[in-house]
Design a protein around this nucleic acid. Sequence first.
DNA 1: GCCGTTTTCGGCCCGACTGTTTTCAGTCG
Length: 592
Amino acid sequence: MNNDQIAEAFEQIAQLLQVEDANVFRIRSYERAAETIRGLGPELSDIRESEAGLQGIPGIGEAIADKIEELLDTGELSFLQDLLDRYPPGFLELLKIPGLGPKRAALVFHELGVGSVDQLEEACVREQVRELKGMGAKSEQKLLQAIESYWRGRERALLGAMLPQAETIVEFLRELPAVISADYAGSVRRGRETVGDLDVLATSDDPAAVCKAFGEGGLLAEVTSAGGTKVSGTLPGGRQVDLRVVAPESYGAALVYFTGSQQHNIRLRERGQDRDLKVNEYGVFCADEHDGDDQEGERVAGDTEAGVYAALDLAWIPPELREDRGEIQAAAAGELPDLIESSDIRCDLHIHTNWSDGRASIAQVAESARERGYTHLGITDHSASLHVAGGISADAVRAQREEVDALNSRYVEQDADFRVLLGHEADITTDGALDLTYEVFDTVDFVVGAIHQGMSADADRMTARVVGAIETGMVDLIAHPTGRVLQTREAHGMHVSELAGAAAQFDVALEISATPDRLDLSDVHARLAQERGAKLSINTDAHSIASLDFMRFGVLTARRGWIEAETVINTWPLERLTTAWLQQRRGSSESA
DNA sequence: GCCGTTTTCGGCCCGACTGTTTTCAGTCG
């Protein structure tokens, strides 16, 4: 079992214990364990064998460690199975309906026998739910609406789809007269690869006016809840949006609170408690000494995020790191990473042109890259064996070479600070061979290795294929290393730790594909790779001009992985990339 | 269930909004 599967088991335990009305702190322990495990780079099976062991992981004690061992050894967990056996198979899905939490799920199950979303819908239509204690006609109606939008929206959406929408909403808010400032927060601001709903924050001296204007502004298909400082609703696509409005002096505290993550916020508030400070979305306050007195203590911070963190003796923590994955300890010790920024990116090294399955010409792509402020660019069309993507022959590669050389000559004549590199995306075939002739290898400036076929093989075989390609010394960069496609295809089992080790040893870069439905390596895997000493490369894998804009999603993913600019070859000046790295690598592979 | 050089027991983040309520539980983030 891999880490995600084990985390999933603990999430299910937490949910079922909530339904069973268990101790809330016991539930929190399982939730925290699940999130911690999702954020781990190394596999639990490896950690178990290490010196520190499973209980060396924060939030993992004896009981949970035992359960991890059982899962690793048997693939099953009797404790979870016993819980699951008490409910019908579709029961956990019920908890995904907004407005139906664990208490009401237990209620409809025990009173009405409802054990799935379908059955809940039926019970609402039959007006049975309104008869239950604490429920009424209105809650029944809300549940029906929630079910409908659940069917429409399903699960989480891709960051690539939601970030532009968040920006649109923020623009709208900023134009309202009553709004002083507005920003998006939540998981979009943290750059998570998928997003459940949008969280937006505004400051104003007249919050009620902002809430009213937002609710009536036409952006929302439906308003589900509206108060004086908070509005919730759904976008036309069914996606939920929450707006919160606070006074300017609370802006920083509200931004921290609303950006999360939940676990990060809990850590901050605990840290506040240690210092006799109360942290909430309005600010940081001296904890009140007097019993039974509701008066708030003196405000010590709140208008800026940096002030809030400073009050807790912490450096400001970039939003992408706020996942309770060690960032608070790092901030306390002054050891936060110097994260890569979009402005550090000088090139995109994985781009398809109309020589294979891309839409634009080399010259068009190059011009577009120049406009984006890049100083160089790598063209990488598919190798011959990838017929479905119009893979190109050795003759075609030679013709590309001539075209690229001619283009570069023009840049030299124009005294332009821009060059095109000719790369080649060589397929790693099902038998582990590299679809690359020496002729092509000698013609191009660099080679990207990638798996596009035979992805159902097991983890050992998949890893061996890619490591084998790395060991040829003919590959400079591994594209979308684990092969996952978000919400479509699971990562093929790949031992990323082993892969990163080989990449570090042979000085091969691993890609963070910036394509929104890939983001592969993931944040967690990228962090692991950097820790193992591997170089990384952030690329769009663009097949059109517009897709060059995906770069920022790759940068966000890298930042979530604690990646510094130095690790990423796209931040290096051209000379360093070509002379100091590519040519040196090729020299060493030829002499080997 | 986890955690701790003040603690191995007794703590564990904080607030808004809704609907069904005569004062608050449930849900959400």
